[in-house]
Amino acid sequence: MTMIEFRNVSFSYDSGNPVVADLSFSIGRGETVGLIGANGAGKSTIMKLLLGLVTGEGEITVDGLPMNRQNLPAIRQRIGFVLQDSDNQMFMPTVYEDMIFGPRNYGVSKEETDRRVDDVLKCLGLQELKHRYNHKISGGEKRMAAIATILAMEPEMILMDEPSTALDPVNRRTVINTVNRLPQTKLIASHDLDMILDTCQRVILLAGGAIVADGDAETILRDRELLEANRMELPFCLQGRR
Protein backbone atom coordinates (compact mmCIF):
# COMPACT_ATOMS: atom_id res chain seq x y z
CA MET A 1 0.00 0.00 0.00
CA THR A 2 1.35 3.43 -0.80
CA MET A 3 1.79 5.93 1.97
CA ILE A 4 3.09 8.80 -0.11
CA GLU A 5 2.68 9.61 -3.73
CA PHE A 6 4.16 12.53 -5.67
CA ARG A 7 2.83 12.92 -9.19
CA ASN A 8 4.48 15.50 -11.45
CA VAL A 9 5.12 17.89 -8.60
CA SER A 10 6.88 21.17 -9.37
CA PHE A 11 7.65 23.98 -7.04
CA SER A 12 9.64 27.17 -6.94
CA TYR A 13 10.21 29.76 -4.22
CA ASP A 14 9.47 33.34 -5.13
CA SER A 15 12.81 33.67 -6.91
CA GLY A 16 11.31 31.73 -9.81
CA ASN A 17 13.93 29.02 -10.37
CA PRO A 18 12.29 25.65 -9.99
CA VAL A 19 13.49 23.96 -6.81
CA VAL A 20 11.51 20.82 -7.47
CA ALA A 21 10.93 19.95 -11.10
CA ASP A 22 8.27 17.52 -12.29
CA LEU A 23 8.92 15.06 -9.51
CA SER A 24 7.17 11.70 -9.29
CA PHE A 25 7.74 8.93 -6.80
CA SER A 26 5.88 6.90 -4.25
CA ILE A 27 6.73 5.40 -0.90
CA GLY A 28 5.03 2.33 0.47
CA ARG A 29 3.72 1.90 3.99
CA GLY A 30 6.44 0.76 6.36
CA GLU A 31 9.29 1.62 4.01
CA THR A 32 12.35 3.49 5.23
CA VAL A 33 13.67 5.73 2.49
CA GLY A 34 16.80 7.86 2.46
CA LEU A 35 16.72 11.18 0.64
CA ILE A 36 20.20 12.26 -0.40
CA GLY A 37 21.66 14.99 -2.58
CA ALA A 38 23.95 17.99 -2.49
CA ASN A 39 23.20 21.16 -0.52
CA GLY A 40 20.29 22.91 -2.12
CA ALA A 41 19.17 19.79 -4.00
CA GLY A 42 15.66 20.21 -2.62
CA LYS A 43 15.47 17.66 0.19
CA SER A 44 14.01 19.98 2.81
CA THR A 45 11.66 21.45 0.24
CA ILE A 46 10.22 18.03 -0.57
CA MET A 47 9.48 17.54 3.10
CA LYS A 48 7.80 20.91 3.31
CA LEU A 49 5.69 20.05 0.28
CA LEU A 50 4.68 16.83 1.93
CA LEU A 51 3.45 18.71 4.98
CA GLY A 52 1.67 21.42 3.08
CA LEU A 53 4.01 24.07 4.47
CA VAL A 54 4.58 25.16 0.88
CA THR A 55 2.37 24.35 -2.07
CA GLY A 56 3.40 23.69 -5.63
CA GLU A 57 1.88 22.24 -8.74
CA GLY A 58 1.06 18.60 -9.28
CA GLU A 59 -0.52 16.01 -7.04
CA ILE A 60 0.59 14.84 -3.66
CA THR A 61 -1.29 12.18 -1.73
CA VAL A 62 -0.56 11.01 1.78
CA ASP A 63 -2.17 7.80 2.96
CA GLY A 64 -4.71 8.09 0.16
CA LEU A 65 -5.60 11.67 1.07
CA PRO A 66 -4.98 14.21 -1.68
CA MET A 67 -3.15 17.29 -0.40
CA ASN A 68 -5.63 20.12 -0.06
CA ARG A 69 -6.90 22.50 2.56
CA GLN A 70 -9.53 20.19 3.97
CA ASN A 71 -7.19 17.26 4.29
CA LEU A 72 -4.30 19.23 5.68
CA PRO A 73 -5.04 18.68 9.39
CA ALA A 74 -5.58 14.95 8.80
CA ILE A 75 -2.37 14.70 6.77
CA ARG A 76 -0.35 16.57 9.33
CA GLN A 77 -1.71 14.40 12.08
CA ARG A 78 -0.24 11.37 10.32
CA ILE A 79 3.22 12.83 9.96
CA GLY A 80 5.87 13.73 12.50
CA PHE A 81 8.56 16.06 11.19
CA VAL A 82 11.99 16.52 12.74
CA LEU A 83 13.13 19.91 11.42
CA GLN A 84 16.60 20.58 10.12
CA ASP A 85 16.95 23.33 12.72
CA SER A 86 15.94 22.20 16.20
CA ASP A 87 15.80 25.76 17.46
CA ASN A 88 12.73 26.21 15.33
CA GLN A 89 11.22 23.00 16.58
CA MET A 90 11.22 23.64 20.30
CA PHE A 91 9.03 26.50 21.37
CA MET A 92 7.84 25.62 24.85
CA PRO A 93 9.88 26.51 27.93
CA THR A 94 10.87 22.97 28.90
CA VAL A 95 11.54 19.72 27.09
CA TYR A 96 8.62 18.06 28.84
CA GLU A 97 6.17 20.77 27.84
CA ASP A 98 7.37 20.53 24.27
CA MET A 99 6.93 16.78 24.26
CA ILE A 100 3.34 16.91 25.48
CA PHE A 101 2.38 19.69 23.08
CA GLY A 102 1.63 17.44 20.11
CA PRO A 103 -0.15 14.57 21.87
CA ARG A 104 -2.26 16.91 24.01
CA ASN A 105 -3.31 18.88 20.94
CA TYR A 106 -4.45 15.66 19.37
CA GLY A 107 -6.53 14.87 22.41
CA VAL A 108 -4.39 12.11 23.90
CA SER A 109 -5.15 11.82 27.61
CA LYS A 110 -2.73 13.18 30.17
CA GLU A 111 -1.88 9.74 31.56
CA GLU A 112 -1.22 8.29 28.13
CA THR A 113 0.87 11.33 27.17
CA ASP A 114 2.98 11.01 30.30
CA ARG A 115 3.49 7.33 29.61
CA ARG A 116 4.64 8.10 26.07
CA VAL A 117 6.96 10.84 27.25
CA ASP A 118 8.63 8.54 29.75
CA ASP A 119 8.89 5.69 27.24
CA VAL A 120 10.45 7.85 24.56
CA LEU A 121 12.88 9.52 26.94
CA LYS A 122 13.94 6.15 28.26
CA CYS A 123 14.34 4.76 24.77
CA LEU A 124 16.57 7.67 23.77
CA GLY A 125 18.36 7.74 27.11
CA LEU A 126 17.25 11.28 27.81
CA GLN A 127 15.46 10.96 31.15
CA GLU A 128 17.79 13.58 32.56
CA LEU A 129 16.58 16.18 30.05
CA LYS A 130 12.90 15.92 30.93
CA HIS A 131 12.53 19.03 33.02
CA ARG A 132 15.40 21.03 31.55
CA TYR A 133 14.84 24.38 29.91
CA ASN A 134 15.09 24.35 26.14
CA HIS A 135 17.33 27.41 26.12
CA LYS A 136 19.70 25.82 28.57
CA ILE A 137 20.53 22.60 26.75
CA SER A 138 23.26 22.03 24.21
CA GLY A 139 22.76 21.89 20.46
CA GLY A 140 22.97 18.11 20.31
CA GLU A 141 20.75 17.69 23.35
CA LYS A 142 18.22 19.92 21.68
CA ARG A 143 18.38 17.75 18.57
CA MET A 144 17.71 14.63 20.62
CA ALA A 145 14.88 16.41 22.43
CA ALA A 146 13.39 17.47 19.10
CA ILE A 147 13.42 13.86 17.94
CA ALA A 148 11.81 12.89 21.23
CA THR A 149 8.97 15.40 20.79
CA ILE A 150 8.14 13.82 17.46
CA LEU A 151 8.35 10.23 18.65
CA ALA A 152 6.00 11.07 21.53
CA MET A 153 3.34 11.88 18.95
CA GLU A 154 3.51 8.32 17.64
CA PRO A 155 2.80 9.43 14.06
CA GLU A 156 2.17 6.99 11.24
CA MET A 157 5.02 8.42 9.29
CA ILE A 158 8.21 10.15 10.34
CA LEU A 159 10.16 12.68 8.33
CA MET A 160 13.63 13.49 9.55
CA ASP A 161 15.66 16.31 8.10
CA GLU A 162 19.32 15.77 8.97
CA PRO A 163 18.63 13.88 12.19
CA SER A 164 22.26 13.07 12.92
CA THR A 165 23.85 16.51 12.71
CA ALA A 166 25.31 17.78 15.98
CA LEU A 167 25.02 14.37 17.63
CA ASP A 168 27.90 12.66 19.37
CA PRO A 169 28.62 9.09 18.21
CA VAL A 170 26.65 7.50 21.03
CA ASN A 171 23.57 9.63 20.46
CA ARG A 172 23.88 9.11 16.72
CA ARG A 173 23.94 5.36 17.26
CA THR A 174 20.94 5.62 19.61
CA VAL A 175 18.99 7.46 16.93
CA ILE A 176 19.96 4.86 14.31
CA ASN A 177 18.87 2.01 16.57
CA THR A 178 15.66 3.78 17.46
CA VAL A 179 14.86 4.45 13.81
CA ASN A 180 15.48 0.79 13.02
CA ARG A 181 13.13 -0.31 15.79
CA LEU A 182 10.27 1.95 14.69
CA PRO A 183 7.72 0.19 12.49
CA GLN A 184 6.47 3.39 10.85
CA THR A 185 7.12 4.69 7.35
CA LYS A 186 10.21 6.87 7.46
CA LEU A 187 11.76 9.38 5.12
CA ILE A 188 15.22 10.52 6.16
CA ALA A 189 17.11 13.33 4.48
CA SER A 190 20.77 13.30 5.36
CA HIS A 191 24.34 13.83 4.25
CA ASP A 192 25.35 11.16 6.75
CA LEU A 193 25.44 8.35 4.20
CA ASP A 194 26.62 5.85 6.77
CA MET A 195 23.47 6.50 8.72
CA ILE A 196 21.38 6.16 5.58
CA LEU A 197 23.08 2.86 4.85
CA ASP A 198 22.36 1.67 8.39
CA THR A 199 18.72 2.64 8.38
CA CYS A 200 17.28 2.67 4.87
CA GLN A 201 16.49 -0.08 2.40
CA ARG A 202 15.86 2.39 -0.37
CA VAL A 203 17.52 5.64 -1.41
CA ILE A 204 16.33 8.50 -3.58
CA LEU A 205 19.17 10.61 -4.95
CA LEU A 206 18.21 14.16 -5.89
CA ALA A 207 19.98 16.78 -7.93
CA GLY A 208 18.47 20.15 -8.75
CA GLY A 209 15.06 19.04 -7.58
CA ALA A 210 14.89 16.01 -9.86
CA ILE A 211 15.45 12.33 -9.14
CA VAL A 212 18.77 11.05 -10.42
CA ALA A 213 18.57 7.61 -8.93
CA ASP A 214 15.99 5.69 -6.94
CA GLY A 215 16.55 2.18 -5.73
CA ASP A 216 18.24 -0.22 -3.38
CA ALA A 217 20.28 1.66 -0.79
CA GLU A 218 23.39 -0.54 -0.99
CA THR A 219 23.52 -0.41 -4.76
CA ILE A 220 23.29 3.36 -4.91
CA LEU A 221 25.57 4.00 -1.96
CA ARG A 222 28.25 1.73 -3.45
CA ASP A 223 28.18 3.54 -6.78
CA ARG A 224 31.21 5.78 -6.40
CA GLU A 225 30.84 7.44 -9.79
CA LEU A 226 27.20 8.29 -9.30
CA LEU A 227 27.85 9.70 -5.85
CA GLU A 228 30.84 11.73 -6.89
CA ALA A 229 28.97 13.19 -9.84
CA ASN A 230 26.49 14.47 -7.27
CA ARG A 231 28.91 16.02 -4.81
CA MET A 232 28.97 13.04 -2.49
CA GLU A 233 31.41 10.37 -1.41
CA LEU A 234 31.13 6.70 -0.62
CA PRO A 235 29.97 6.10 2.95
CA PHE A 236 33.01 5.80 5.20
CA CYS A 237 32.27 2.19 6.02
CA LEU A 238 32.49 1.35 2.30
CA GLN A 239 35.64 3.31 1.58
CA GLY A 240 37.83 0.49 2.79
CA ARG A 241 40.40 2.77 4.40
CA ARG A 242 42.99 1.20 6.60
Binding site: L53, R76, F81, N88, F91, F101, N105
Partner: peptide, 23 residues
Protein backbone atom coordinates in the same frame (compact mmCIF):
# COMPACT_ATOMS: atom_id res chain seq x y z
CA UNK B 1 11.23 34.00 9.76
CA UNK B 2 11.75 32.22 13.01
CA UNK B 3 8.30 33.10 14.27
CA UNK B 4 6.95 31.66 11.03
CA UNK B 5 9.00 28.48 11.37
CA UNK B 6 7.98 28.08 14.97
CA UNK B 7 4.38 28.62 14.07
CA UNK B 8 4.75 26.03 11.31
CA UNK B 9 6.14 23.57 13.77
CA UNK B 10 3.22 24.27 16.09
CA UNK B 11 0.78 23.64 13.27
CA UNK B 12 2.54 20.38 12.49
CA UNK B 13 1.93 19.27 16.02
CA UNK B 14 -1.77 19.81 15.90
CA UNK B 15 -2.06 23.43 16.94
CA UNK B 16 -5.43 24.65 15.74
CA UNK B 17 -5.63 28.20 16.88
CA UNK B 18 -6.03 27.42 20.52
CA UNK B 19 -3.58 26.18 23.09
CA UNK B 20 -4.79 23.21 25.03
CA UNK B 21 -3.31 25.07 28.00
CA UNK B 22 -1.95 23.50 31.10
CA UNK B 23 -4.58 21.22 32.55
Amino acid sequence: DRAQELFGSMLLRGFQGEFFYAD
